[in-house]
Simulated scan of single mutants.
Amino acid sequence: MGELLEQHGVQIMYTKVWRSLQHAKRLTYGNPDESYQQLPSYFHMLKETNLGSITAIETDENNYFLYSFFALGACLHGFRSYIRPVVAVDATHLKGEHKGVIFVATCKDEEEMIYPIAFGFGDGESDRSWIWFLMKLREAIGVREDLVIVSDRHQSIANAMSHVFPSVPHVFCFFHLKQNLKKRYRQRKDVMTAFYLAAYSYTTIECDTYLAEIQSMHPQTHLTLMEARPEKNGLVIDVLQLPDSKPL
């Protein structure tokens, strides 16, 4: 509004600017309702042009949209053939008219770059939505002996994992734990150094040694790490730091 006044000598109300912006977005990106209506056609063409792709749409009893899922055939082929099966799952909130979340499942390739596996859309991060997404992910990638799932500490993910992948190791992301520790305790450098060393330990004895140091320096941090079940997960695995992830 200030630029319009300065450059063109026009004073305009905020509400009119906002309505103009929304109209411009609709002209550029289309109507959100129409976009959701085009999902079946888009998924059909996706499977026609990218063989091996997997798609799914879930609706309620009134045929209203609930969830969707898609995994590109080329990405699935690469995952099965070449990628280390350490899969990170997360969700990020949509800011459009219909809100909801985007679910993502990714890995890292040999160049340490993000490798996409699958995406989904849902109404939020609930037990039901995570169970649905992980069930579709299981159909897409199967259950390998060396499969590992990485996530933040969202309780719905843990609940869904116990339901869908009960035999697959579920570990917590190093990045999220680190951010939580910084946010909660404003950690000293010596405590964070011991945490890094514990996280990157390759043996249980070495990890326990650094955990003991953390307990002596800051008992509350040690308690937080114990709640992350290091005896089950090998503390944490820094296999993937999800982009724009926000700690819980």
Rank of each mutant, 00 (worst) to 15 (best):
T59Y: 13
L137T: 03
D244S: 15
A88W: 03
T92I: 05
L94H: 06
Y36K: 05
G96N: 02
H77K: 13
S129R: 02
W130C: 00
F195H: 00
R186Q: 14
E6M: 14
K95W: 11
V164T: 02
H8K: 09
E97W: 11
L137G: 00
E139K: 00
I117A: 09
I141Y: 01
S201N: 06
R138K: 09
Q215P: 14
F79C: 07
D109T: 07
S20L: 08
E139P: 00
P166K: 02
V87K: 00
H98C: 10
E111F: 15
E213H: 11
V86R: 02
A199G: 12
V87A: 05
V143M: 00
R80H: 10
F195L: 05
E206R: 12
I12E: 07
G52M: 06
D123Y: 11
D208L: 15
H8T: 06
L39F: 07
T224F: 13
R128H: 15
L21A: 07
Y36N: 06
F43S: 10
A212S: 15
G100Y: 01
A212K: 13
S20Q: 09
A199D: 06
M161C: 06
Q187F: 12
F174P: 07
G52A: 03
Q7P: 10
R80T: 10
A71F: 01
F172H: 03
P169Y: 03
P219S: 05
K25D: 14
Y202G: 15
I214P: 06
H218I: 10
H222P: 09
I131T: 11
I102W: 05
L197S: 13
V239A: 15
L94E: 09
E97C: 13
